[in-house]
Design a binder for these strands. Structure first.
Length: 943
RNA sequence: GCGCGUGUGGCGAAAUUGGUAGACGCGCCAGACUUAGGAUCUGGUGUUUUGCGACGUGUAGGUUCGAGUCCUAUCACGCGCACCA
């Protein structure tokens, strides 16, 4: 009896490829199902055993859906642009395209060994001109669009231009960088260049001089989500703030839609919550304050309009332009010194150091409601990028204002009945208002006394709006995405500059291919790497790329030197899979109408605020353009947990070459050292392999316990430096792909992070061998019979089918594997080798272990692939119990059990219980008042 | 600080609406077959007790005939956001 998994797996992988088994084509007679994995970045390290987890999970689902009769799209491709390939290129001179190609080949080889049902005919790579053609095309669409807040959608920029030329900016309700007022006459009087500059205020893809996260070590800017704790996510290099001209995408225009859309999609609450936090909606009020003895006005944003009577100072962000305007002569020196000091500090330093700092400007603002004079300060605890960069400070009810007031001895005026602000501020939005206003402003038209905080906020909003003192405003934390990267290995912008004005190259001329460069580093003059490209100018007359030498500013113009960031290629790839070889459109409307959007998206949580926001934005834009018919790209999202490494340690006694076993190591002064997990089994070290591992260990001595060297262990990230990387190829070689697939999902719930531990894999392997043993005897003779199955066998089988049918859609794969083990154990115990049973068993198992199931399917006499079989239906009849065991309890304590026929009525049970001599014996002589019968389980007797 | 989530054997973990806690697998123990076992098969395995039994789902209460599950408080860990006004 031999289960030769290597032979079987190779045979079927070859056959699937030859027969194009997993090819999928649109078919209107069949219901569609779209399964998608977040496509990988092909790194040089290859796949480790953690990477395929999500692919296995989605593969099981895809195969299951196919068996249920769906037309399943399950594509795969590569997110091939990225920093590591570029950095490798800088170090070695090797072109990133070459290393990327090699890495992809290696990935493909590894993936193929695991037996996925990907349709490789639809493979895409983001660095392929055929693919980034449509990334560039979408960018041009964004450039040529603005966001209309009235229609709540992106509209052609011509609409806006038309309006500007006829009516000016009056009445335009559009997402913009800043409020602009321009009359039609002014607009029409502007030069082309001036008009183009102004339009940047509205374009969805626009150029803006903004503060960016500049990473000097990487020589590029980074998006907010690429910066973690003040350092770059990749590489951990320091990041500083710098003002630069950059391409941006007006993601913020979609804030509300991105927020609302979350209610319509089936994602986990935690990831939705993360996105809500990231979007950061806050409803509040903008109020205008006037500076005393001047015409200067400024606006603040607050969510606590109710606290207007408690304002005892105002604060401006140091970056605010107002600071210079309102600083009095007397305070000039102090203010400038303060600004100087803050400028030198990075954002990160300002965040870490929470000491209170600030300086008085010398000016006073007028409270628009009471007319009170309020001192205006400057402090870096106010951020220039949020709200208006200015606040009204209410120390009694905001902890930051409180700290500031305490430090500088400013009045703290409590506004809520009974609150104690002697030690700390009262920040909660609850209680009854008082002192609003205080007696000396009693003639003030607004009175909030006696209202709850909630009522007071609403009342103040009304008052402010009626008296034109400001307006109700919703603020979002979500910023526009910075879209330029000073890198080589990315999508080039389809943009040339005519007299400094950016112009898109004609759509018909796309793709604009990435040029060759001599060096992948920035130029001497500090231009991005594309500055090295010779063939990098646009000839408008011949509509082609030409040499930079030909630039004449009449017909030949310089091309953009930045490239697009990583998320550009990964934002709409799901659409491209629907129609990957279309030369005339991103996706045909037919293909889009058929596949709609992704039904099941599988990937890690690390993209919660990056890819998963950008691609929703990107897709909403394409939805507005009428390209995508679904507003949300990913209907259901499953986040697979990470598989961590399980590192092993040996303990070397200090200054010796002697290693002591784990439980004896406490008695010595030892240094724990990582040891390669591949020479450790069940935490027992293979001593010979250890001596051979490294030359310095060749003469190592060991202090053993019970004849073995026991290693310590810890859960850590899977990485080369920890010597805990387990390669899937090695597992496939030793146990087979089916065992690997079963074991990966058997490790635990799919969404949970867990350490890889090769030790448990035998259990899954034994299971498959046991299954094999139901088909063949020791001499490899097939023992399958045509006998009719027994009731017991049918029950075992249908219990399993029911479980699998319910568990797969719920992603309870780990318990499902258990169910298969139970079923096979039961059937083996019954010595069942009946075709009628085994046939359905292998179909149900095939999503999990496709190779062995194909083989056994063939053994059972089938000539077509098991993928085209039908998912077995379970029959409730077989699952019914003949009798049900009831526990008879007395005041909650179980006393005895009785069996009843499954169909016994409550009355039957009650009568039987009362007549039972056991029951009499245990009622302690007291009369029974009531028998409570809980269906199927327990009969309760109350006295 | 705010928000979200998780706590069950030596380990990974199960447990439909509240109804026999610990399924299944690993590990461990014993046995069988073996020259051998890191192969295979069979049985056992929460703690405690010679036994009957008692106790057991982070901790402390509560609801209930009955709580891993519901409620309140609390502790620990993980994740997200964070001078966001």
């Amino acid at each position: 009896m031999a289960y030769n998994f290597n032979e079987i797996e190779q045979k079927w992988q070859k056959r699937w490829k030859e027969n194009n088994t997993y090819r999928v084509v649109e078919n209107n007679d069949k219901k569609k199902f779209y399964v998608l994995n977040m496509f990988p970045y092909p790194s040089g390290a290859g796949l480790h055993v953690g990477h395929p987890l999500g692919y296995i999970a989605s593969d099981i689902f895809a195969r299951f859906k196919r068996l249920q009769g769906y037309n399943v799209l399950n594509p795969m491709g590569y997110d091939a642009y990225g920093l590591p390939a570029e950095q490798y290129a800088i170090q070695t001179g090797q072109h990133p395209a070459v290393t990327t190609e090699q890495n992809i080949a290696r990935y493909r080889e590894q993936l193929d060994k695991i037996g996925f049902c990907f349709d490789w005919n639809r493979e895409i790579r983001t660095c392929d001109p055929e693919y980034y053609h449509w990334t560039q095309w979408t960018f041009i669409k964004m450039f040529n669009s603005y966001y209309n807040n009235d229609t709540k959608s992106a509209r052609p920029i011509e609409e806006l231009i038309d309006r500007l030329s006829k009516e000016g900016s009056a009445g335009i309700n559009a997402a913009c960088s800043e409020e602009v007022e321009v009359t039609a006459a002014e607009w029409n009087g502007m030069s082309e260049t001036e008009q183009q500059e102004l339009l940047m205020n509205w374009r969805i893809a626009f150029i803006s001089e903004t503060m960016v996260n500049w990473c000097p070590m990487l020589g590029t800017v980074l998006a907010n989500d690429e910066v973690v704790d003040g350092v770059s996510e990749r590489g951990g290099h320091p990041v500083v703030q710098k003002k630069m001209k950059q391409w941006c995408l007006r993601v913020s225009a979609y804030s509300q839609r991105l927020l609302d859309g979350l209610d319509r999609i089936d994602w986990t609450d935690s990831i939705k919550e993360t996105q809500r936090n990231w979007i950061g909606r806050s409803e509040g009020t903008e109020m205008n304050f006037r500076i005393k003895d001047s015409d200067i006005q400024f606006t603040i944003f607050t969510t606590r309009a109710d606290t207007i009577f408690g304002v005892t100072f105002m604060v401006l962000a140091p970056e605010s332009e107002l600071v210079a305007q309102i600083t009095t002569e007397g305070q000039k020196e102090a203010v400038e010194a303060y600004l100087d000091r803050t400028k030198k500090r990075t954002e990160r330093e300002r965040m870490i150091d929470r000491n209170v700092t600030g300086v008085f400007t010398g000016s006073y603002a007028i409270n628009p409601i009471t007319g009170e004079e309020i001192p205006v300060w400057v402090s870096d605890y106010v951020l220039s990028g949020y709200g208006t960069g200015a606040i009204m400070a209410v120390p009694a009810h905001d902890s930051r204002d409180y700290a500031f007031a305490k430090h500088f001895g400013i009045e703290i005026r409590p506004l809520i009945e009974g609150c104690d602000v002697s030690e700390e501020s009262f920040d909660a939005k609850e209680g009854i208002m008082t002192n609003s206003p205080v007696a000396k402003f009693a003639d003030c038209k607004l009175n909030l006394n006696g209202l709850t905080v909630k009522e007071a906020i609403a009342r103040t909003k009304e008052f402010v709006t009626e008296n034109k003192l400001g307006r109700v405003k919703v603020n979002y934390r979500l910023r526009d995405a910075i879209f330029s990267r000073q890198r080589y290995w990315g999508e080039p912008f389809p943009i040339y500059y005519k007299n400094g004005v950016p112009c898109p190259i004609p759509e018909e001329c796309l793709p604009l291919e990435l040029p060759e460069v001599e060096k992948f580093l920035p130029t001497e003059s500090g231009e991005p790497p594309l500055g090295h490209a010779k063939m990098w100018a646009w000839d408008t007359a011949n509509r082609c790329v030409t040499s930079k030498e030909n630039i004449n500013n009449e017909t030949v113009f310089p091309l953009e030197l930045n490239t697009m960031p990583g998320f550009s290629g990964s934002s709409a790839y799901y659409l491209r899979y629907m129609d990957p070889r279309n030369h005339t459109a991103l996706v045909s409307s037919e293909a889009d109408a058929y596949w709609q959007n992704v039904d099941l998206y599988v990937g890690g949580t690390e993209h919660a605020t990056g890819h998963l926001i950008y691609s929703r934005f990107w897709n909403m834009f394409l939805f507005d353009m009428g390209i995508s018919i679904k507003e949300e790209p990913f209907q259901k999202l499953i986040n697979q947990g990470m598989i961590q490494g399980r590192s092993n340690f040996v303990y070397r006694i200090k200054d010796t070459n002697t290693f002591v076993s784990l439980n004896l190591s406490k008695e010595y002064d030892v240094t724990p050292l990582h040891v390669d997990v591949n020479i450790v089994s069940n935490d027992v070290l293979d001593i010979d392999a250890f001596r051979a591992w490294r030359p310095e260990y060749a003469n190592a001595e060991f202090i053993l316990e019970e004849g073995k060297y026991i290693c310590g262990w810890a859960v850590e990230k899977m990485s080369k430096s920890m010597f805990n990387v387990v390669n899937p190829d090695v597992i496939v070689e030793k146990y087979g792909a089916d065992t690997l697939r079963m074991y990966e999902i058997f490790l635990g719930p799919i969404e949970q992070s867990k350490p890889w531990d090769t030790n448990g894999i035998d259990g899954c392997h034994r299971f498959l061998r046991k299954l094999w043993g139901m088909f063949f005897d020791k001499n490899d003779n097939c023992i399958v019979t045509d006998e009719a199955p027994s009731k017991e066998e049918l029950k075992s089988l249908h219990k399993l089918i029911k479980k699998a049918t319910e568990d797969i859609p719920a992603f309870s794969y780990n318990t499902n594997v258990s169910a298969f083990m139970i079923c096979v154990n039961e059937l083996s115990a019954l010595k069942c080798s009946k075709k009628a049973i085994l046939e359905q068993l292998v179909v149900a198992l095939s999503p999990f272990a496709p190779h062995i199931c194909e083989e056994l399917w063939e053994v059972l006499g089938h000539t077509t692939t098991i993928c085209d079989a039908e998912w077995p239906a379970f029959n409730e009849e077989y699952l019914k119990e003949d009798t049900i065991k009831y526990t008879i309890s007395f005041n909650g304590k179980a006393r005895f059990t009785m069996d009843f026929a499954a169909e016994a009525s409550n009355a039957d049970i009650e009568t039987a219980v009362l007549a039972n001599e056991n029951s009499q014996k245990y009622i302690d002589g007291k009369p029974i008042r009531k028998v409570i019968i809980v269906p199927k389980k327990i009969v309760n007797i109350v006295i």
